[in-house]
Design a protein around this nucleic acid. Structure first.
Lengths: 226, 226
DNA sequence: GAAATTTGTTATACATTTGTAACATTAACG
DNA sequence: CGTTAATGTTACAAATGTATAACAAATTTC
């Protein structure tokens, strides 16, 4: 088993670490654990393909550790995923300014985590290759959270962006309103189905000619048609 | 009926068990019930494709049973879904650490349950999300909810799609009108048998030459002939 | 904390799907 | 053959699903 990729998990909660480790191992990764930023720094981090950081930790926060990693020459290209309790804008800004590659909000499913990890690794392997999703001249910059058609920028709101992100991640697939709700809206909010229709409508308009690629499948839901 | 997948439901509440059993059977599964973890252990669990566990049960909890299943060599790959009253972090952590595949919070709708069950089974089957059913040039894109003959798209309505989906899932099998009703129509709707005939007719027409593959077995029902 | 933006809801118009009834056709069987 | 039962076909009404606009509420921004 040569090809196993090493992942470092840094979190001060033992149980969380164990869960993460177990699930990532099941997904085929080799996982090491550090229970604090300091403990992580004591390791030779060079060997990891990806580092998974919790924001909230004892002395040094995940952000700080991310900053250190990014400013260390031999570590600066290692992808970092931050686990954050809430996705406050502040966190996002702080994270991006420190070069974090992806976020995952707690509580997250293990399935989702594994998907993100794989996605980030894929991106890293191709060197920025797939940090964007494309269809013809339509480009979605997943990291920069922006959208453009050719040279023209299309300002999307968060919901619009997330919906398009979901659709372009699985072109051709039809998502039920329930699925869209689960993946775009927070778990605790309660919105009616019509809300999705309205957001789809707004997105369609902003996408101009590409708006027609967002198809309605009567009785099923919506999706992006290639 | 070879292809029926077996599901084991373990719950100490008789009524819950009955409801689950009924609904899963309608969804096309074969369901056995155990009223306690101990009772479940007495069964030969090897034959089940999925085990649905309640957390709260008399002596042994669902988690404990999950732990036992996971640590038993010949059972350890069977997918497990846990039904939990509360979604406390603790429960989630405990569950994932024992290798549970999915959660469902009470109270849940039967529709949701069936969706989760199918999703977990699909995952377990190893074939990701993408799946199509084919017969010659006829292709049914199950995730895209679309149908095509060669390059030509055949727009199907939801009912038409669902009927064809059912038929192509078990080519050669004849479905009684009652079976078709149970699998294609929602539980609470009440339609007459002739409705199915009409929908079959519509489907046949849209399928053109393949329409002839939908055969009528007089006095029994309909099916797709390979 | 006021203005601007985003997001959710409601209401209405519109389009499609679906169910049913009525009648036509076909198969089974004496 | 002719009768009966089952299924095929058609047309239309009813039910359902979706698009859109307008407004209200929430959130963000300055």
């Amino acid at each position: 088993m040569e090809n196993l990729q090493n992942i470092l998990v840094v979190d001060d909660e033992e149980t969380i670490c164990e869960v993460l480790k177990l699930n990532l191992e099941i997904a085929g990764f080799n996982v090491d654990v550090a229970n604090s930023a300091e403990e992580a720094l004591a390791l030779n981090m060079e060997c990891y393909s990806l580092i998974l950081l919790d924001v909230m930790m004892g002395k040094m926060s995940g952000f700080e550790l991310a900053g250190i990693i990014r400013s260390t020459e031999r570590l600066k290209d290692i992808p970092i995923i931050i686990c954050t309790a809430k996705d406050s804008e502040d966190d996002l800004v702080e994270g991006f300014s420190r070069g974090v590659d992806d976020y995952i909000k707690k509580p997250f499913s293990m399935r989702e985590l594994v998907l993100r990890v794989k996605s980030v690794l894929r991106r890293a392997a191709g060197k920025g290759e797939a940090s964007t999703l494309k269809y013809k001249t339509l480009t979605l910059d997943v990291v920069g959270k922006s959208c453009s058609m050719g040279c023209k920028r299309i300002p999307l709101t968060k919901k619009e962006f997330e919906i398009l992100h979901l659709f372009l991640s699985y072109p051709g697939r039809i998502f039920s309103r329930e699925e869209i709700l689960n993946r775009v809206w927070d778990d605790d909010v309660l919105v009616i189905d019509r809300t999705i229709d309205v957001n789809i409508n707004r997105l369609r308009r902003k996408l101009g000619e590409y708006g027609n690629n967002i198809m309605t499948k009567l009785g099923y839901g919506y999706g992006f048609q290639q």
